[in-house]
Design a protein around this nucleic acid. Structure first.
Lengths: 226, 226
DNA sequence: CAATCATTCAATCAATCTATTGAATGATGA
DNA sequence: TCATCATTCAATAGATTGATTGAATGATTG
């Protein structure tokens, strides 16, 4: 009955933050910024928004304490503020993906076994199953990125072509899709497509950059799809 | 450069969810619902909102896929939907608390060592340090709740009285505040107050119910503050 | 079946938010 | 210092959102 139970400032603060995240443009901006400090102009290029509009959204983000700025000559560089922001973004995306998957499930009719299929696959399990040859690795990045380096024995089908080229994927193996890393949405998209067509698919969330960082085997020159 | 990089549906879905969370009333409702299925009337009582208003907010939450309903006689019961909703709420609150702490830091002048002080204390560490007597356990729930049961050797100062009764707390020990559990905001509030006055404080996030569940020692009758 | 109760719907007004436009600021370099 | 460039500010119009009111729905009880 104390009103601190119902009108607690933490709810107002949380709501402020959530409202700030409640606009697709700002989420896109935030995700670009999360990949590295960027100037306003660069962000307008990346998003296709007008300059003033971008600036306005950025200041909204700044007011909410999600980004910080510094000046470098004429430019103002935006970077992510400290704190568990990425955790919030990750949780939010994960929830959105979950809800989206459930939605598709309703539409598609297949009902029971989504939870398991949604899961990410850990690097350890991925390596183990690559050695067992019990999976198909699917690289859904654009062909040019694939050409510069990829996980061993990965097949490349850019996500835009995936629906048309599904026949290239075996039905009797787990498909593990990967792309540029946790903040890249291509593999999430791929999962949705695969699921919608009855494949059993999981996702290697860390993607290619992480594989690289871990110093693991990378193919770089010749295609080796056997 | 593909527009799936910038106009990806996942951002719209995430934004929808975030916008839905972007109102303090809905956050309050959601937190009440997270504690257990509740009817609309009960929620109006808990929040003090009008019935129609509450219903409207609840339907907003429902549209966004955050809650689900079932009918029980005349009543409609709202419960949390499946999925990582609680994770989002936790992350959001954690970020809000972080930002709030940083804000106060700026105001108060103390600057460097917040991160450590913000951290929750695990049950293991708590038990260890209780045995070492290297902490002071602070129960910030209302006196009546404290009277019905508490952690061993806890001191009770309801959070509303905390600022006035700070003198009762030693300066030379870590203060560990707890309340009703992860969804209870009292201890978060207490931390803010303690921090603002220079105490070194942490939080036992799981709170009293979890301690109880774990079957650990509980004091129930007599005050035992030595 | 009529009365009652819990919830939802519909309509309204005020408040807030977004994109756009064009002007203003602030730093740089000739 | 003047011109230029990147960014921000200010003002506007259109759209969306929130609280309130009163009526409508749907299930239960007598």
């Amino acid at each position: 009955m104390t009103d601190s139970d119902t009108h607690h400032p933490i709810f107002d603060l949380s709501a402020d933050i959530a409202r700030t995240l409640g606009h697709a443009h700002r989420l896109v901006l935030l995700n670009h910024i999360a990949e590295g400090e960027k100037a306003v102009e660069r962000l307008t290029d990346l998003t296709g928004l007008g300059v003033a509009n971008t600036s306005q959204h950025l200041q909204h983000l700044k007011r909410a304490g999600l980004v910080q700025t510094r000046r470098d000559g004429k430019r103002v560089l935006y970077r992510l503020a400290a704190g568990p922001i990425e955790m919030v973004l990750a949780a939010l995306r994960s929830l959105a993906e979950h809800n989206n998957a459930q939605l598709r499930e309703l539409v598609e009719g297949g009902a029971a076994n989504t939870a398991a299929r949604l899961e990410n696959i850990s690097r350890e399990e991925l390596i183990r199953r690559m050695n067992e040859d019990s999976i198909v690795l699917l690289d859904v990045r654009p062909a040019d990125e694939f050409a510069t380096g990829r996980l061993p024995r990965a097949i490349n089908i850019p996500v835009e072509e995936l629906e048309l080229r599904l026949a290239e994927l075996p039905r009797d193996k787990l498909v593990v899709a990967y792309c540029r890393g946790v903040r890249c949405v291509l593999s999430a998209d791929a999962l949705a497509i695969l699921r919608a067509h009855g494949w059993v698919a999981r996702r290697f969330e860390q993607g290619f950059p992480d594989w690289l960082d871990a110093g693991l085997d990378v193919e770089d020159g010749h295609y080796n799809s056997g």
